[in-house]
């Protein structure tokens, strides 16, 4: 069943890709390697694997996903940036690439990549336990402002992780110092949500998606989402703008990129292929089922997004004292 489906799609994609310049072998002529800087089984791995499966059908060549883990993403990102720019090694890059270099952990920045397409963005939310005292985000903000420094405890990920920065950004937006609320580092969002429900924390600032099961179980509530518009999967959660008139957004994003100086033919072909993948019903269905945010930007838009994200995260890290001066 799969074989026939694959063959028809392969034929269709062959017809779609008009023959390129004569005399040159058509790209891709052999299998492509896609590097994932995070471990197999995680969210980034899942997103890359669905993209790879769909790209494989679209481009007609096998796509091998390779997990190059280590160094909190440093190793895999560096492997993508330093790959041979022949169009046969690319990978998925994540928000961390705009954070690690501010901490002085790597020399690699977003400028060391050829952006190909932004495929996903999961905005941060503000979650409280459902039996907690704060009914809306405005009340929580007032309580935070009235508290003494370090009295409120929040979590969502490790020290200096992306959700720590969403806390710092939100605190600055409501006019208190970025370190006013004490950050409790955790091994990711799931343990933080558990500690929130067990009564160990005041609120969490991880993504709404990661809080989903606790929200469904009515153990926690999400007061606001740090995005420009409401999420399709969570239409009842107001944006910060709606709830308290603050223009602040932050999220964990993922995109496909290659090493610098990719041939123009590869860039164009990948750009078109990623566009088709993003619009395919399989991708939309997969992302919706996992609750991952569907945000797309083409190569150029992804490039602008990278620059903006790098600047914003850098500011938040400096304010929270996390950047290496």
């Amino acid at each position: 069943m799969n074989a026939t489906r694959r063959r028809t799609l392969l034929g269709a994609s062959g017809a779609l890709l008009a023959a390129p310049a004569l005399g040159q072998p058509r790209w891709p002529a052999r299998p492509i390697q896609m590097i994932c800087p995070w471990a197999a089984g995680g969210g980034t791995d899942a997103v890359l694997r669905i993209i790879a499966t769909l790209l494989e059908k679209d481009l007609g060549q096998p796509i091998n996903v390779v997990n190059r883990t280590g160094g909190s993403g440093v190793v895999g990102h560096a492997a993508i940036a330093s790959a041979n720019p022949d169009g046969y090694t690319m990978g998925i890059i994540t928000s961390e690439i705009c954070m690690l270099h501010w901490q002085g952990l790597t020399e690699v920045t977003f400028r060391n990549f050829t952006p190909l397409g932004l495929m996903n963005n999961d905005p941060a939310g503000i979650q409280v336990a459902s039996n907690g005292p704060h009914q809306d985000v405005r009340a929580l903000a007032e309580a935070v402002k009235a508290s003494r420094p370090g009295q409120f405890k929040a979590s969502g990920t490790g020290q200096g992780g992306i959700w720590h920065l969403s806390l710092a950004g939100w605190l600055m937006a409501i006019g208190v110092p970025a370190t006013h609320v004490r950050w409790v580092p955790s091994n990711g969002a799931a343990p933080a949500m558990q500690d929130l429900v067990a009564g160990g924390l005041d609120f969490t600032t991880n993504s709404v998606v990661e809080a989903r099961a606790m929200l469904d179980a009515n153990r926690a509530r999400s007061l606001a989402v740090m995005a420009t518009e409401r999420l399709g999967a969570f239409p009842n959660i107001p944006t910060l703008k709606e709830a308290m008139g603050i223009d602040y957004s932050n999220g964990a994003w993922r995109g496909i990129a290659g090493p610098p100086n990719l041939p123009a033919a590869v860039r164009t072909a990948m750009n078109a292929a990623l566009d088709r993948v993003f619009k395919s019903s399989e991708y939309v269905a997969f992302m919706n089922s996992r609750g991952f945010g569907l945000t797309y930007a083409d190569a150029e838009g992804f490039g602008r997004h990278l620059a903006a994200s790098d600047a914003a995260l850098g500011d938040a890290m400096k304010a929270a004292g996390l950047a290496r001066s």
């Binding site: 995680g42 558990q194 099961a213 179980a217 996992r290």
Partner: peptide
């Protein structure tokens, strides 16, 4: 019940549950 992984294996399994529309929860 809560989408909290008990170990690395169930962390992967939770992803599959969501993907297949069997969202964890009571």
């Amino acid at each position: 019940l809560f989408g909290i992984p008990g170990d690395t294996i169930t962390a992967i399994a939770i992803g599959v549950l969501y993907m297949k529309g069997l969202n964890p929860g009571p």
